[in-house]
Structures are given as C-alpha cells and as structure tokens.
Amino acid sequence: MSWQEAGPLRVRKEIADHLRRIADAGHLVIADADLAAVHLVQLVAGDATTRTYHGAIPLSPEETRRLADAGVRAFLHGYAA
C-alpha cells in the first residue's frame, strides 16, 4: 500500500539508517538495523499505543515521556556496545 511506503515504512527505514550510523560509530551493537528499528519503535511507542487504545484516550505529557524514556532505556540495554 502506498500509505505504508509513504509513512510507516519510510520512517522505519530512516530510523534504521540512523541506527546503522550509530552502530558504525561503535555506540551500539546492531546486526540487523531494520529489526533494531522495529524494536526501538515498539519499545518507545508500543505501551503508549496500547494504553491509549491507539490514541483514543490521551496520556499526560509526563506519562508519555515516562513511557518513551523507559522504552529507550530498554532499547539501549539490549543494543549497548
């Protein structure tokens, strides 16, 4: 679908490209940047998406930051150099 290519897939590719550069600089250990991008997105946004029923129920900015920060910490724990 063209909306997938213009939106989610394009964003995932951009994230994967950034993660690949960060790994090439020695800051992360990533064998598959595309998979790592999926992991990062799911860890950062997955819980918020579930808790809000895909945006139907808002979260406070503080809770959104807390969930996103926890996702980033989990990602870094799994992919740290």
Score class of each variant (00 low, 15 high):
Met1Thr: 14
Met1Phe: 08
Met1Lys: 11
Met1Ser: 08
Ser2Cys: 10
Trp3Asp: 11
Trp3Met: 08
Trp3Lys: 12
Gln4Pro: 07
Gln4Ile: 13
Gln4Arg: 15
Glu5Met: 15
Glu5Phe: 13
Ala6Gln: 15
Ala6Thr: 14
Ala6Asp: 13
Gly7Cys: 03
Gly7Leu: 00
Gly7Gln: 01
Pro8Ala: 07
Pro8His: 04
Leu9Cys: 03
Leu9Thr: 05
Leu9Trp: 05
Leu9Val: 03
Leu9Ile: 04
Arg10Glu: 04
Arg10Val: 06
Arg10Phe: 02
Val11Leu: 14
Val11Met: 12
Arg12His: 11
Lys13Ser: 14
Lys13Asn: 09
Lys13Asp: 08
Glu14Thr: 12
Ile15Glu: 01
Ile15Asn: 00
Ile15Gly: 00
Ala16Gln: 01
Ala16Arg: 00
Ala16Leu: 02
Ala16Val: 03
Asp17Val: 08
His18Glu: 03
His18Ile: 06
His18Asn: 06
Leu19Ile: 01
Leu19Pro: 02
Arg20Gly: 03
Arg21Ala: 09
Arg21Ser: 08
Ile22Met: 00
Ala23Met: 10
Asp24Ser: 15
Asp24Asn: 15
Ala25Gln: 08
Gly26Glu: 04
His27Glu: 06
His27Asp: 05
Val29Phe: 10
Val29Tyr: 07
Val29Cys: 13
Val29Trp: 06
Ile30Gly: 00
Ala31His: 12
Asp32Phe: 03
Ala33Lys: 01
Ala33Leu: 04
Asp34Thr: 08
Asp34Pro: 03
Asp34Ala: 06
Leu35Met: 12
Ala36Gly: 04
Ala36Cys: 06
Ala37Ser: 04
Val38Tyr: 04
His39Trp: 10
His39Gly: 03
Leu40Glu: 02
Leu40His: 02
Leu40Arg: 01
Val41Glu: 12
Val41Phe: 13
Val41Tyr: 13
Val41Asn: 11
Gln42Lys: 13
Gln42Asp: 11
Gln42Gly: 15
Leu43Glu: 00
Leu43Pro: 01
Val44Asn: 01
Val44Trp: 03
Gly46Cys: 12
Asp47Trp: 02
Ala48Gln: 07
Ala48Asn: 05
Ala48Asp: 07
Ala48Tyr: 10
Thr49His: 07
Thr49Pro: 01
Thr50Pro: 01
Arg51Tyr: 00
Arg51Glu: 00
Gly55Leu: 02
Ala56Lys: 15
Ala56Pro: 07
Leu59Gly: 02
Leu59Ile: 03
Ser60Thr: 15
Ser60Leu: 10
Ser60Trp: 11
Ser60Met: 10
Pro61Met: 10
Pro61Glu: 13
Glu63Gln: 14
Glu63Cys: 05
Glu63Trp: 04
Glu63His: 09
Glu63Phe: 06
Thr64Trp: 08
Thr64Tyr: 09
Thr64Cys: 09
Arg65Thr: 12
Leu67Gln: 14
Leu67His: 04
Ala68Tyr: 04
Ala68Trp: 05
Asp69Trp: 03
Ala70Ile: 11
Ala70Gln: 11
Gly71Tyr: 00
Gly71Val: 06
Gly71Ser: 02
Val72Leu: 15
Val72Gly: 06
Val72Asn: 10
Val72Arg: 14
Val72Asp: 06
Arg73Met: 09
Ala74Trp: 06
Leu76Ser: 07
His77Gly: 11
His77Glu: 13
Gly78Glu: 06
Gly78Asn: 09
Gly78Ala: 07
Tyr79Asn: 04
Ala80Gln: 07
Ala81Tyr: 09
Ala81Leu: 13
